[in-house]
């Protein structure tokens, strides 16, 4: 039971991470109609920039504004130089151009930081573990990630549902042409949305630093899972990204944690581990295939 709760929290933590990435990606998809494979690169940029500053300053905290700032800036530059040219293109051109961006970003990072993974210093506040309920010890850093993720979710909810920008975003994701026709400065809206997505990706990247290694290729690993979240949740829907992100995070973590043990009941341990880990890797893709076959537009698809 304790183990189960612990894995549930791990799943929640992975889920909010996926949500941070998927929220930006789904907005970029839904509003601008752009498939952005380079979203994972912004996550990587945030992780490297934040970690570099944190290492220089020998403290975790200055890394956060640095990650946000650099990821946001890089996002704005990418939007202005590449993405802007892709709005009117078909999906194929978007996939290719942003695939090219992945190659470019990965090599630039290798040129600057090398291939060795670097590690983010963890502030002392987060050392050790705390007892949440009797018998359940959990690292406070992961709890912080969960709370930050939930805070962002609440913040986004208010931004989308209570502000003027949010109104435009909602309108843009369902009636793009109409928003344009009503004289809204769509270009500015696009830039803001892309910048927001980049900020969230950078934040997610930096916060993952102390848990996973910061290295080249970290963006692609999580990118595919993020796309699965976006597609399952329904393109353009923040609510969908939240539900699907948390759901997938939990399912993925649970499969990885418990499937090999269950399979050991039926077969040799080494086979069970191999099969278990590969089925759990397949799990999210299988889930996506099933959801799409039942609801081809995803769970919470925005209209249109």
């Amino acid at each position: 039971m304790i183990l189960f709760l612990e894995q549930l929290l791990n799943g929640l933590q992975y889920g909010v991470m996926l949500f941070l990435l998927a929220a930006g990606l789904t907005l970029i998809f839904g509003i601008m109609g752009v498939i952005n494979l380079a979203h994972g690169s912004l996550y990587m940029v945030g992780a490297f920039a934040g970690t570099w500053v944190a290492t220089q300053a020998d403290s975790f905290w200055p890394g956060i504004p640095a990650a946000l700032l650099i990821a946001g800036l890089v996002g704005l530059v990418v939007e202005a130089t590449v993405i802007r040219k892709l709005y009117a293109r078909d999906h194929l051109d978007q996939v290719l151009a942003t695939f090219a961006l992945i190659l470019i970003f990965n090599q630039l990072i290798v040129l600057i930081f090398g291939r060795q993974p670097i590690f983010t210093p963890l502030p002392e506040v987060f050392y050790g573990s705390i007892e949440i309920i009797p018998g359940l010890f959990y690292p406070p850093y992961r709890l912080m990630i969960i709370s930050v993720g939930l805070l962002v979710a609440v913040g986004l909810y208010f931004l989308i549902n209570r502000t003027r920008i949010g109104m435009l975003v909602r309108a843009g994701s369902t009636h793009r042409e109409m928003v344009r026709a009503l004289g809204v400065d769509v270009r500015l809206l696009y830039t803001v949305v892309f910048g927001l997505g980049a900020l969230l990706a950078g934040l997610a990247g930096y916060m993952t630093g102390p848990i996973l290694a910061v290295q080249v290729g970290m963006g692609e690993e999580i990118l595919l899972a993020t796309f699965v979240v976006v597609v399952i949740g329904g393109v353009g829907s923040i609510k969908g990204a939240f539900v699907a992100g948390i759901g997938l995070g939990v399912v993925d973590t649970m499969l990885r944690a418990f499937l090999p043990t269950i399979l050991r009941g039926f077969m040799a341990p080494s086979d069970a581990d191999a099969l278990g880990s590969s089925i759990s890797s397949m799990g999210i893709f299988l889930l996506m295939a099933i959801v799409l076959l039942i609801r081809p537009k995803g769970l919470f698809a925005a209209g249109g």
Binding site: F227, S270, D271, S278, S281, M282, A289, L293, P296
Partner: peptide, 27 residues
């Protein structure tokens, strides 16, 4: 092929990933 557009791109990618992990698991 029941889906289209972005969903088609993603679902073909998903199936390919499943096959990829299947072969990774074939010890």
């Amino acid at each position: 092929l029941r889906t289209g557009g972005i969903q088609f791109i993603m679902i073909t990618l998903a199936f390919a990933q499943m096959i990829f992990f299947l072969f990774v698991s074939l010890t």
